[in-house]
C-alpha cells in the first residue's frame, strides 16, 4: 500500500462563513447544539438519580437545588432541548426514508420543529404543574 502524506494541505470545501445564514442551516446547527445540551442535561439527571439512591440527606440537598428558580430554569431548558432534538430527530428519520427532502418540506419541518418544541415544552410543564401534581 502506498503511503499517502496525511499531513498534506488538502483543499477545503467552503464552510459556514461563506454561506448566507438560512433557516434550515440554523436548524441543523440547533440540532447539534440541542444534542450537546441534552448530554449536559443528563449530568443533572444522573445527579438526581444518584441522590435518590444515596438517601434522604443527599436527596434533600439536590431537591432543594431543583426546586429553586435556577434548578427549574435548567430543567425547563433541558426538557426544551430534549423535545427540540426529538422533533429534529423525527425530521431526520423521515428524511432517511427519502421523503420530505423538497424545498417546501424542509422549511415546513424547520418551523414545525421550532414552534412544536416550544409549544410542547410549555404544555408539558403546564400539565406537570396542574394535572400531575408537580410542585
Amino acid at each position: 500500500m502506498g503511503k499517502a502524506k496525511l499531513g498534506a494541505e488538502r483543499p477545503l470545501s467552503p464552510h459556514l462563513q461563506i454561506y448566507r445564514p438560512m433557516l434550515t442551516m440554523m436548524m441543523s446547527i440547533a440540532h447539534r447544539l440541542s444534542g450537546v445540551a441534552n448530554a449536559v442535561g443528563f449530568i443533572l439527571l444522573a445527579w438526581w438519580l444518584v441522590a435518590i439512591a444515596s438517601g434522604p440527606e443527599a436527596y434533600a440537598q439536590v431537591s432543594r437545588f431543583f426546586a429553586g428558580i435556577p434548578g427549574r430554569v435548567l430543567l425547563f431548558l433541558f426538557s426544551w432541548a430534549l423535545i427540540h432534538h426529538m422533533l429534529g430527530g423525527i425530521r431526520h428519520l423521515i428524511w432517511d426514508t427519502g421523503s420530505g427532502l423538497d424545498k417546501t418540506s424542509i422549511e415546513v419541518f424547520a418551523w414545525l420543529t421550532i414552534i412544536g418544541s416550544t409549544v410542547l415544552t410549555v404544555l408539558v410543564w403546564v400539565a406537570g404543574y396542574t394535572i400531575m401534581g408537580g410542585r
Binding site: I52, A67, S79, G128, M132, G134, R135
Partner: peptide
C-alpha cells in the same frame, strides 16, 4: 427507542420535582 423513553422521562421529571423523598423513591 429514545422517543417514547424521553417522553416518559420528561413526564417523570416534571411530576416529581421537589416531591418528598419517599414518594420519589
Amino acid at each position: 427507542a429514545n422517543i417514547p423513553l424521553v417522553i416518559f422521562l420528561i413526564l417523570s421529571i416534571v411530576s416529581h420535582i421537589g416531591a418528598p423523598y419517599d414518594e420519589v423513591r
